[in-house]
């Protein structure tokens, strides 16, 4: 995992609530045994029509979405299945963070393990972001703050261990492995 420090980018807005993992990456694309290439089918059923042609009015098919790394959506983003293919697809496409007022548990946990930043903000900030697609904003991991174009900043919750892993590009497995003596002891005592 690459360390993540700051994300500075324009936003893309999908203003819908309850965007579920079946929309992020439909199940028929889960028949893969690797991670690469999932970005092509990110939001596949919204992006392409039944002939595979791009749907003109879907935001990711517009020029202004090109190169944007921050997605802003309605509340309860990532609800549904546990498929880690969802953050993999977002990352593979080029997104590095999602901002909402609420993010589903398993999606959040999966995201953090891949260096994809789930950001929960207050209603007021969220409303501003929804109304101003394409705004140039900064997400700072070290201070866990979001900075708007006019310099106003607001903090977002980021669990300290996840923050440490993001900043240092660390996979949690290292931490578990370092504690294998405790795991051995637990197994001994419960057997």
């Amino acid at each position: 995992m690459e360390p993540v420090n700051k994300i500075n980018s324009r936003t893309v807005v999908i203003p819908l609530d309850d965007v579920d993992t079946d929309q992020i990456i439909p199940a028929r694309y889960l028949r893969t045994t690797v991670r690469a290439g999932l970005g092509e089918n990110l939001f596949a059923d919204w992006r392409y029509d039944k002939n595979g042609t791009k749907v003109a009015d879907f935001v990711l098919n517009n020029d202004e979405a090109n190169g944007a790394e921050i997605l802003v959506t309605g509340r309860n983003f990532g609800c549904g299945s546990s498929r880690e293919h969802a953050p993999w697809a977002l990352l593979d496409y080029g997104f590095r963070a999602v901002i909402s007022t609420e993010i589903a548990d398993i999606f959040r946990s999966n995201s953090l393990k891949n260096g994809f930043l789930p950001v929960v903000v207050d209603e007021q900030t969220h409303e501003w972001l929804i109304k101003n697609p394409g705004a140039e904003i900064t997400l700072d991991i070290e201070s866990s703050t979001l900075v708007l174009p006019d310099g106003r900043s607001t903090s977002f919750p980021l669990e300290s261990f996840s923050q440490y892993c993001l900043l240092n590009g660390i996979d949690e497995l290292g931490f578990l492995m370092d504690n294998s003596a405790s795991i051995d002891a637990y197994e001994e005592q419960t057997n």
Partner: peptide, 18 residues
Amino acid sequence: FGIGTTEVYHVLATQCLL
């Protein structure tokens, strides 16, 4: 409870989760 694939890896390797 359900977990993601990175956690599947963690449990296969250590039988534990954070």
